[in-house]
Simulated scan of single mutants.
Amino acid sequence: MADASKDYVGSFPPGKKITVVFVIGGPGSGKGTQCAKIVNQFGFTHLSAGELLREEVKSDTEQGTMIKNLMQEGKLVPSDIIVRLLLKAMLESGNDKFLIDGFPRNEENRQAYENIVNIEPEFVLFIDCSLEEMERRILNRNQGRDDDNVTTVRRRFGVFQESTLPVIQHYEKLGKLRRVDGDRQPDIVFEDVKAVFAQLNIQVASTRKREGTEKC
């Protein structure tokens, strides 16, 4: 893992700003929908921890089978596996702005990310959605996923609430948490999301402008 970390750091040009935003929310909170809108509006690369895990499951490897069993039981996948998958995706993207969806889910995730990647997120977007609304959305969608039944959904929500609350509190204490009401229609939610990212976009643009001026 240490070697992977060195490769990661060396992959970015010296002095280049790398922007990372975490997107956190319970299952069915609408993270994926909002991330797609953010990508279109602001040019981020969307990396879904859940999607990367599901792709690994499809690989039919020993690790993929282990991940599948954990997901079916509503349990969380070990942090080193998640970070390694995220790291690989970041290296292959060629972008410098990353939207990491569904991560970190717990303090272990957060610490593993900080130890291996060590790029502080600009902020953490928390899609705050009620259990009733998340359950309704998940049961209404038709994706053929094995983890979309009532019992598993409620277990997943319980795991999310218990494990992710310390992460939310950590970033809130640092002043990096941006909370939006996810119970509303996606377009309405995105109005709040746009306001958050528009501020970030201005900050990033200003930084690049200063860097360009210094070079001149």
Rank of each mutant, 00 (worst) to 15 (best):
Q161V: 07
K6G: 00
Q203H: 11
Y8T: 08
I202G: 00
E133N: 13
P14S: 03
N40Q: 08
G30W: 00
P121V: 13
G144D: 04
D187H: 09
V159G: 06
A195S: 11
N69R: 14
Q199V: 07
S79T: 02
P104C: 12
I24C: 06
Q185V: 11
S163H: 01
A195R: 14
R154Y: 11
G15E: 13
L125K: 07
I116Y: 10
R145T: 11
E191T: 11
V196Q: 05
K17L: 04
C129N: 07
S48H: 07
E211G: 10
E214A: 15
L47N: 00
S48P: 04
R178Y: 03
R179Y: 01
G102D: 03
V21H: 00
V159W: 03
A36M: 04
G50I: 01
T33M: 09
G144V: 00
A198L: 09
F103T: 10
P166T: 08
V150Q: 10
I168F: 03
Q203K: 13
L70N: 07
C129W: 11
D101W: 05
I67K: 03
V167I: 03
E62Q: 13
F103I: 05
F123M: 08
K58Q: 06
N201Y: 13
N109Q: 13
Q63A: 09
I38E: 02
R141V: 08
T213K: 15
F12P: 02
E55P: 00
V83N: 07
C216T: 11
P186Q: 03
S93G: 13
K58Y: 07
P13S: 10
L165S: 10
A89C: 01
V204S: 09
A4P: 03
L91A: 12
I82K: 03
L53P: 08
V124E: 00
T213L: 15
